[in-house]
């Protein structure tokens, strides 16, 4: 800021206060995860009053986080792969077909943005029951891609439209069929958007809560980490340290991915929102 009037100071103060308010609960979470109740009560703000790594072991055990994290990974990876398998050919076709039917199909997907899936919570459970997939992870693997389909298809279509026609023509002259064309010409050129789609879907599938709650139910063998986590607050109402440790455990995968791909991830979220 070039001129720092009273408004400028106010702006600095306001923004940094907000930053502090964002960090404080996260800081509190992190330090509490290493404390017992006495520590949380008597020294709420001091870091590491006597380390208690057993909080993590206890959280892991009480909420059966081991299988829960594996289930979460299974659902996330399965749904992400299925989304790509479905969305890539669709985007490939939509990018090339510009007739009225193609426009119509694209519009159907664009409308999908505006469908609030949450309203259909109960009918979705009914669908799971009628497919005999209630209380299974497999239904989530099948269902979640549908919710991600509009954004995935539109982002990929946009990227594939940018593939120059000459490239395609020369590939066709060389005798490439449709699948070959998709695999060796379009996919490599749309790589960036594929990354964006994968990151966005990873985030939303890993963090999915409500549908996972009603579909996988309370069974510890199939429930996901997001469903298992809140049970810690009911079972250990008086021990925030254990709950905090549980939260930290479920956050680690996401933050590791973020640490590795910070720039890509921010770009992906921006791209996703702008399309929305």
């Amino acid at each position: 800021m070039k001129r720092t009037g009273p408004l400028g100071y106010l702006a600095h103060l306001g923004v940094w206060t907000y930053v502090l308010l964002l960090l404080l609960p996260l800081y509190y979470l992190l330090i509490s995860s290493f404390k017992d109740n006495t520590g949380i009560l008597t020294a709420p703000f001091s870091p590491f009053t006597g380390l208690r790594p057993e909080n993590f072991a206890q959280a892991f055990h009480n909420a059966t986080l081991g299988p829960a994290l594996l289930n979460q990974a299974y659902v996330t990876v399965g749904a992400s792969v299925l989304t790509l398998v479905l969305a890539l050919p669709a985007a490939f076709a939509l990018a090339r077909a510009r007739g009225p039917l193609g426009v119509l199909i694209e519009r159907i997907f664009a409308m999908g943005f505006l469908i609030p899936g949450f309203a259909a919570l109960v009918p979705t459970v009914l669908l799971a029951i009628s497919m005999q997939l209630f209380y299974t992870r497999e239904f989530l693997v099948l269902f979640l891609p549908a919710s991600a389909m509009p954004l995935s298809v539109l982002l990929l279509t946009q990227a594939m439209r940018a593939v120059p026609a000459e490239l395609e023509e020369s590939a066709v002259i060389d005798g490439a069929g449709s699948w070959r064309l998709l695999w060796s010409v379009y996919l490599p050129l749309a790589r960036q958007s594929v990354t964006v789609v994968v990151i966005l879907n990873f985030l939303s599938f890993w963090n999915e809560y409500f549908f996972a709650l009603v579909i996988t139910g309370p069974d510890t063998a199939v429930r996901t980490a997001q469903v298992a986590l809140p049970t810690l607050s009911q079972a250990n109402a008086s021990q925030y340290g254990v709950l905090a440790a549980g939260i930290v455990i479920t956050l680690i995968p996401v933050y590791v991915v973020y640490a590795l791909f910070a720039d890509k991830m921010e770009g992906a979220v921006l791209a996703g929102a702008v399309k929305g």
């Binding site: 398998v85 479905l86 969305a87 050919p89 669709a90 490939f92 076709a93 939509l94 090339r96 077909a97 039917l101 193609g102 199909i105 159907i108 997907f109 999908g112 469908i115 899936g117 309203a119 259909a120 109960v122 009918p123 979705t124 009914l126 669908l127 099948l142 269902f143 891609p145 549908a146 919710s147 389909m149 509009p150 298809v153 449709s178």
Partner: peptide, 23 residues
């Protein structure tokens, strides 16, 4: 070409539009 969009479209109709309509 549009046959390629069929699986995605079916998925979307079965898992998103269908439940919403039956609502």
């Amino acid at each position: 070409w549009l046959g390629f969009t069929l699986p995605a479209l079916v998925w979307f109709l079965v898992f998103t539009v269908g439940p919403l309509v039956s609502l």
